[in-house]
Write a protein that binds this DNA or RNA. Structure first.
Lengths: 201, 201
DNA sequence: CGTGGCATGTAAACGGTTACATGATTTA
DNA sequence: TAAATCATGTAACCGTTTACATGCCACG
């Protein structure tokens, strides 16, 4: 296991919520890390196999209460040690990939209105993201447990919120600038239509 | 060509700066898009070949002034059209990958001081990023050209700046919280040493 | 002349997604 | 019983990085 972050995400998830199956891991990762990490089944299931083979997790039968047939896993001591070692390593900066920023940068090359459309869309997605994160925040506050892990979760959540809000603020002013710019451009290209009375056939 | 964003990055770069070689493209992408996109030589050179084969770019001999032997490329009309079509498509959200946030989330599982170390490191990297972006901003302001592309560049730059500053602000308060939390933890684990007079042998 | 950096490339390995296949369980 | 959803998995494909190979040019 060299650069296999999937494995560590699984170890980490099992460290806070034992006895999960592949399916549940996928769901838990989506729900908890959705704003900063993702894994697909195609990564999870093979990783579970190899982690079990290495003795870092072990398969266990589902709790009797659960009716469904499924394979659950839990962390071993070796797995916990391995997770801790990884945590202590410097984190790596993943290569940046933001297609929105790319398309915005090339905005002048695009047809009039395209950049504006992309900004509106990014605002929509970020508002959605903000709602999700605020939902998590509310739930966490209501739970108000003494769980010692919670401060770390709240810090992480706080960064997600801060970044999303910053993006939304930027979007506000970008919309203003762009609508000024691009209506100008449209006026040059296709002069104003007067009042459109008729409509499409 | 289906999901090949490398190709579009190249087309876009050539649309704003014609006659670039693979090496120069790599440098230009690094310098201009460094905060939101990256490409490696292993992607660039093969893409140049296939783009040329499709007629979206064409190879041209270096300007006589340039002494070095190298293959330069420029955009064709077909290439420009292709770029425009891509720009008008909705952008895709790339899967989030932020290893820092992952390690912070698991902070309680790590040895005392580890989370703090990671936050200090992320602050360091973000300060570096901020300096780079502010450098670009300064240069752009001084140039103060009438280039119609510039507003789009400045908007993109503005988002990069906003996100970086938000991350730095968050980091400030995270450092405070964490240093309070983790010194507590250390005190419980290894009670205070008094004044260390002797040192390591 | 030799060394170091510039410049161009390629092959292999890897990480990751997608599409597909399958069966079991719940709900209508 | 039919349809939807839960759950597990696999194979193929694709995008990407990494490591390696190579030759040119400038400079000491």
């Amino acid at each position: 296991m060299k650069n296999n972050r999937t494995a560590y995400v699984i170890l980490g998830m099992l460290s806070i919520q034992p006895n999960l199956s592949g399916y549940e891991l996928h769901k838990a990762i989506e729900e908890n890390f959705g704003s900063f990490w993702g894994e697909s089944y195609g990564q999870i299931y093979p990783s579970l196999k190899s982690l079990a083979a290495e003795g870092l997790i072990k398969a266990c039968q589902p709790t009797p209460s659960s009716k469904k047939r499924r394979q659950e896993y839990s962390l071993t001591d070796a797995g916990r040690t391995c997770l801790r070692e990884w945590l202590a390593q410097p984190f790596q900066n993943d290569p940046p990939r933001n297609e929105f920023m790319l398309k915005l940068f090339f905005g002048h090359e695009a047809a009039p209105g395209v950049a504006l459309m992309h900004v509106r869309e990014v605002q929509r997605r970020n508002r959605q993201m903000l709602a999700t994160l605020e939902g998590i925040e509310t739930m966490a506050r209501e739970a108000q447990s003494e769980n010692p892990k919670k401060p770390y979760w709240m810090l992480t959540l706080g960064l997600g919120l801060a970044l999303t809000r910053a993006a939304l603020d930027w979007g506000e002013s970008a919309l203003e600038q762009l609508s000024a710019m691009e209506t100008e451009k449209v006026q040059k290209t296709q002069p104003s239509e007067g009042k459109p009375v008729a409509n499409q056939a």
